[in-house]
Write a protein that binds this DNA or RNA. Structure first.
Lengths: 212, 212, 212, 212
DNA sequence: AATGAATGAGAATTCATTCAT
DNA sequence: AATGAATGAATTCTCATTCAT
């Protein structure tokens, strides 16, 4: 027979975790439709099926709840990306996969995309958050791939590595943002191959004879 | 001597126009520091040196005022850009100039940049505005340059022209946004040549032998 | 004919002052029935016949409104007291009058009394207010009377003057407080002569032969 | 050996009493820092090392807990006072001792003083409490002393005995209140002799020749 | 045309109290 | 008996907008 106390504790813990996650899920739905100021705690509580006050047992404030959203989502992104990159060799192949996965992730998480791309990414207070630091780390894989490509000799070394990262992420974030603003009316993955191709040609070492 | 009536009318008209512009100028200052919800009509009125109620003689609502900001700024951007492209031949040279001018414009207009890049570009209601359509036109020059390059045979034709445009603007907007969020702590023009080079290599027709 | 502008301005000013006073009057009524925390801005606004928000055009906050109450009341107290002391000579006669007037003032201003005696006088944050300093000044007349009596040689000089002041005010405040807590069921002025007599005997110089 | 059941019961009983007292002790600490409304049950529970809900096993409500505070403290005051008066003869000597003990008690119990003097003494609902009646009894010793003095012929009989009591308690309560509001920055006992002297001179029968 | 006083809807947050475990 | 999660009522203050002057 298992000890009742331990069992009970576990049960309570998981109940708390489940509720916390259900609040975050409700928050994602609400914040993806209205901006931070416009969205209301009441609406989130209602969607989560709990009382307004209960939210404050799990989060210090509306802002705390808001900034808690990316944390689990980022973990999901990062761990899945790792799986997808598994077994792929060559920097360019990895970049192709990264481009695809980035777009795929937001295609399948448009609500979260709206929050991250159209709200947070653009908020000065978010940049000061620790969540932001956490998020930046999470795309550090891009940096690794670039470095790998430079070591392989296939990616140009005449350019600041941060500039290259900005290029890649800038393009991808822009694509996702436009797609969301256009209300997801087309397939976000549609052009992923073309985009990869151009990106890779831009990054490639030993560029072709300049004619211009 | 001109008829007094007409003179008077002109005088009144210009007074109205001048006041309208002074309101917009005040709005740019205020909206660049606070987001749409946080900024207050009162503060704008105070900065413009008029009464709160007076703003409603010139603009239907807070939103109307907000969305009126880009119009004159866009005209300025477009006309100046034309001057800068004057006399330059070759699609790649024009792209280099466009990249430079785009960054230069926001380097010298950071307040407007904050509003356009960190607020409007990301607002669903803005996308539905006629101002948005107007803004899109204003970067149509990029499209012309791309087409020109394709006709010259120097820009790849295997890729959707809209995708190419997104690439260019996505990178530039991303650069400006990051710079603004980092509180303009570095020189926005710092990397403009590297960025142009990579962009052009990515766009270039007859890409080099693929080794990957 | 008087200048319209001036007339108009005066008119507006007095309207603002009148409204301010009507808010304070409503606040006195409400705060005298409920303590600071329990009383609500809504109730005050309703009693003043205006919208909740209007109060915030006249007072920065609930606290600001609360602490604004004593200011005009204190002015009233002080100026009336001066009139009542006019023409009275002799420190003891003045003390008798002061005792009478103090009790009389709160007998005729019980609502204000409840606020001052049962709320403010007992609040640590009030002691830090400038209103508190203002209030202390307002009873400085007591000090003058005591000093006068000491110079006349009729009031004892073996005791700290502040102690004497505390004695007088302590007794009077206590009488008012008890009377208010007992819901004004008896006449506050009932014992004013006895109290004066005892007080004066306590203060008197050349005390009688101590037998104890 | 005593029967186990009885022992156990006693044990349980005392455990309940001890916990009740520890809650009251925690309440004194918390209520002395914040007023009734501002103090929270949560904070009291935390300070007592128990769960919020547990408090409601010992007290009906927050108010009930609040008003339970003075009961034991009053018993302490009364019994100690009796000891201090023991063996002292003469009404004036007793008054001197009473003044001293009153101030001494609050000097050594400032937390309770804050609650009694700055909160309860001023609360209309407290006056209706049975605790209030109990408290009033506890200072009935003053009445006894006054009567004693009148019988001895040393205390004036031309004045209502309740007025005399109010005088004494009013002065003492005022002294304690001021001292607490001034954050105990000086010695509360500093002036106790002067105060006694003046009080006694005020109360004394056959007052000196009135010159006024 | 300009003013600015008045409006009143709206929202985050706190906390005493309950009750299932 | 003890717990502490959940409740939901209650309140201050802000601010876009209106409208009488």
């Amino acid at each position: 027979m298992l000890p009742i106390g331990g069992n009970n504790l576990t049960h309570i813990m998981s109940k708390k975790i489940i509720r916390r996650e259900s609040i975050i899920q409700a928050a994602i739905e609400v914040f993806s439709k209205k901006d931070f100021k416009t969205a209301s705690i009441s609406e989130i509580a209602q969607k989560a099926g709990i009382a307004d006050g209960t939210i404050y047992q799990y989060f210090k404030s509306k802002e705390d709840l808001f900034f808690s959203i990316p944390i689990e989502k980022t973990n999901e992104f990062r761990s899945q990306l790792e799986l997808h990159l598994e077994g792929i060799s060559g920097a360019f192949n990895k970049i192709r996969k990264f481009v695809w996965y980035f777009l795929y992730f937001f295609k399948t998480n448009p609500d979260y995309g709206r929050i991250l791309m159209l709200e947070m990414r653009v908020s000065k207070s978010f940049v000061k958050t620790e969540t932001y630091g956490f998020l930046k780390q999470s795309v550090s894989q891009v940096m690794n791939i670039i470095t790998e490509g430079q070591n392989e000799g296939v990616i140009r070394q005449d350019t600041d590595i941060y500039v290259l990262r900005h290029l890649i992420l800038g393009i991808l974030e822009h694509m996702v943002s436009r797609w969301l603003l256009k209300e997801e009316k087309y397939d976000l993955l549609e052009h992923h191959e073309e985009v990869s191709r151009i990106l890779i040609d831009g990054l490639r070492a030993i560029p072709p004879n300049h004619l211009t």
